[in-house]
Simulated scan of single mutants.
Amino acid sequence: MKKQILLVSLIFFAVNVVAQNSPFQGLEFLLGNWQGTGSGFGNSQSKITTSFQSVMNGQFIEVINDSKFEPTASKPEGEHHIDRGMISFDKARNLIVFRQFHIEGFINQYVLIDSLSSANFLVFQTEHIENFVPGGSAKWTIEKTGDHEIETKFYLAFPEQEAACYGTNQLIRKK
């Protein structure tokens, strides 16, 4: 009987240790390199590469987005957008936090909204944006649409206005 209790205790301990060390378990489907196309962002088409990599002994997920937009009448040279960020786990708040730095100078600090997210759909909502209109907010959603496919959407809200989708990306995992 003591052996059974010890075995159950060890299994319980092991499961809790793994759970404590895996705050990103719900994000693992994102890990890897992605490529695809985007639309929106000023009615322009883009080619995008995205990377989600576990870094620093699994303490963070590094996110790199690189979008090249086709030329338009207002931007005949096209446009090149880069943003980089880190997803972390804030132990004190028991929240996943995503800090995203844009080439244009914006810094978004998002939190993952558990109540709106599921195994195949993630909702990140800003709690702060640097260098943007005071009172504005952003939302970033990621939907797993297939085993190796995701769709991301970026929403923006100006003060006292409803959020609007400013861009959508269709991404396929690179082999």
Rank of each mutant, 00 (worst) to 15 (best):
E149R: 00
G36Y: 11
P159R: 04
T141P: 04
I172L: 04
R99L: 12
G40F: 15
N16D: 05
F60N: 07
M1T: 14
I5R: 11
Y155P: 09
S46H: 05
I96Y: 12
I5Y: 14
G32R: 04
L112A: 05
K91I: 07
F41N: 10
N131C: 10
T168Y: 11
N94Q: 13
Q125C: 10
N108V: 01
F132N: 06
V133S: 09
S54V: 03
L7W: 08
V111G: 02
A73L: 07
I48F: 03
G135M: 08
S137R: 09
K47C: 00
V18W: 15
I96A: 00
T37N: 07
Q53G: 02
A119N: 15
F106A: 10
T152I: 06
N65P: 08
D114E: 14
M56T: 09
N108I: 00
N16V: 12
M1Q: 08
A163Q: 09
L116D: 14
N94D: 06
N65E: 01
S22E: 08
K3N: 09
A19R: 10
I96L: 13
V18R: 15
L171V: 08
E70R: 00
N120T: 14
L171G: 04
E149P: 01
T72V: 06
I82P: 05
K144M: 04
G36S: 05
V111E: 14
G42V: 04
K75E: 13
M86A: 06
G146H: 11
V55M: 06
F69M: 00
R99G: 05
T141K: 08
L30M: 11
L31I: 11
